[in-house]
Simulated scan of single mutants.
Amino acid sequence: MPRLDRIALISDVHGNLTALEAVLRDIEDRGIERIYNLGDFVGKGPRGREVIDRCRERCPVNILGNWDDFLPDPARTYDNEAMRWWLAQLGPGQGDWLRALPFCHDLLMSGRRIRLFHASATSVHHRVSFDHDGEQFAGMFANTAATGDRNPAPTVVGYGDTHDPFYEVGPGGRTLFNTGSVGNSMDDPTPVYAILEGVLDSPEPASFGVQFVRVPCDLEAELAEAARLGMPELDGYVSELRHGIYRARSTPVYHRKG
C-alpha cells in the first residue's frame, strides 16, 4: 500500500490569532507539514495583521476570501466604524497581498481531482450553504471564468465561507465538503479544520479520506485581547466566540468611489 499523504485545510481565521495558533499546534502534533488556507484571514477578530503573517509563514497555499477581497479594496470607503478599524489593523502591503491571492487551487489525490476555493465556483461573494439544492451542488463542480475554463472539472470540492463544516456525496460520486471555521465557528464555537488524506499527485485510485478536527483553545484570551485593543462590535464577537451565535449585522456598509 502506498504511503498516504495528509494536507491540513484551514479557513475563516478572521483575525483570531489564539484559535489559529491552537490549530497550528494540533497540526504540528499530528506530523502534518502541508497547510492550505481557504481564505478570510481578516475581519471579525482583532488580529488580522498577525494572522496574515503566520499564514504566510506556514501555508504554501493561500486562497482569496470575500473579506480579503472587499476589506482592503481601494475603491471602497466605509461608514462602519468596525470596518475602518479592521482595515487599519493591516500592515504595509498586506491589503495588496490579500487581493492578489489566487481564486482556487487544484490538486490530484488518490485518483480524485480536488478543487479548493473559498465560497463558490463563480465568486468569493456568492454563498452556498449546507442546505443547497441540486443545481447549487452541481454548480460547485463547474469550470467557470473564475476557476479557469481549461482546467479539468473536479470530482471533489472543498470550501469554507459559511463556517459550517459538512461532507456530502452526490450524483456520480462527486464529493462536496466544507472545512468550517478556525476563528469564527458556527453553533459549536470550538475551532475546526479539515484533513485530506490520500496519495498526493497520483492518478491511480487509492485510499482517500476527509477528517474534521475540533481544537479547544482559550477563546476568552482572544476576547480579552480584542477588548484591550479597543475593537468595535465587541459584544457581537463575544456572542460568536462564546456561544457560536452570530451578531445581527450581516452585510458591511460601504461606498464605492467614483
Rank of each mutant, 00 (worst) to 15 (best):
H105M: 02
A19H: 00
S120H: 09
F137R: 13
I52G: 06
V128T: 06
I114A: 12
I35Q: 01
G209I: 04
W97A: 14
V156H: 09
G91R: 08
R84N: 15
L64M: 09
R3Y: 11
V128P: 02
E50S: 14
R115H: 12
A100L: 01
F166S: 15
G43P: 05
T251Y: 13
S250V: 15
P46M: 03
G134P: 06
A153T: 11
H126Q: 10
V215N: 06
D161S: 12
P232Q: 02
R174M: 07
F70I: 12
F103Q: 06
T144A: 07
V182S: 05
H163V: 13
A22S: 06
V192Q: 01
L176Y: 11
D201I: 08
G209W: 05
S239G: 15
Q136G: 00
T251A: 10
P203G: 06
L219G: 10
H126S: 13
A88S: 15
A224W: 00
I10N: 08
S123I: 04
A138G: 10
H14R: 13
G134T: 15
N16W: 00
T162K: 01
M231C: 04
D161I: 08
L71I: 15
L17G: 14
A82S: 12
T77W: 09
D96K: 15
R54N: 03
A88Q: 07
K44H: 14
R58L: 08
V124I: 00
D201S: 02
W85G: 11
A153K: 11
C104T: 06
L196R: 11
V124M: 10
C55S: 03
P203F: 07
A153P: 02
V199K: 01
R242T: 04
P232D: 03
P154H: 11
R214F: 08
R247G: 01
D161N: 14
A224L: 00
R76G: 02
N143Q: 06
V215T: 15
N80E: 10
G91I: 09
K257P: 14
G172I: 14
A8I: 05
H243C: 05
E197H: 03
G48C: 01
W86A: 13
R84K: 15
C59Q: 14
I7G: 08
R30M: 01
A194C: 05
N184L: 03
V51Y: 13
G236Q: 02
D26F: 06
C55H: 02
F41W: 14
F166G: 03
R25Q: 11
D29V: 05
E222P: 12
E50G: 09
G93N: 12
S239M: 01
L64N: 00
R228K: 14
D12W: 04
R256Y: 07
Y193C: 12
M231I: 04
L219W: 13
K44S: 07
R150E: 14
V128W: 06
L87G: 09
Y246T: 04
V213R: 15
G45F: 00
M186C: 05
S250Q: 10
G139C: 09
A119G: 14
D131A: 04
V169A: 13
M109A: 07
G170V: 12
R115N: 05
S181Q: 00
E222N: 06
F137H: 13
M186N: 14
L234M: 10
L108H: 06
G198N: 01
G160D: 06
L9S: 08
R247D: 09
R214E: 01
I52K: 10
M1C: 05
L196G: 12
V213L: 05
T251E: 04
L241K: 13
T179I: 15
C104G: 05
T175D: 04
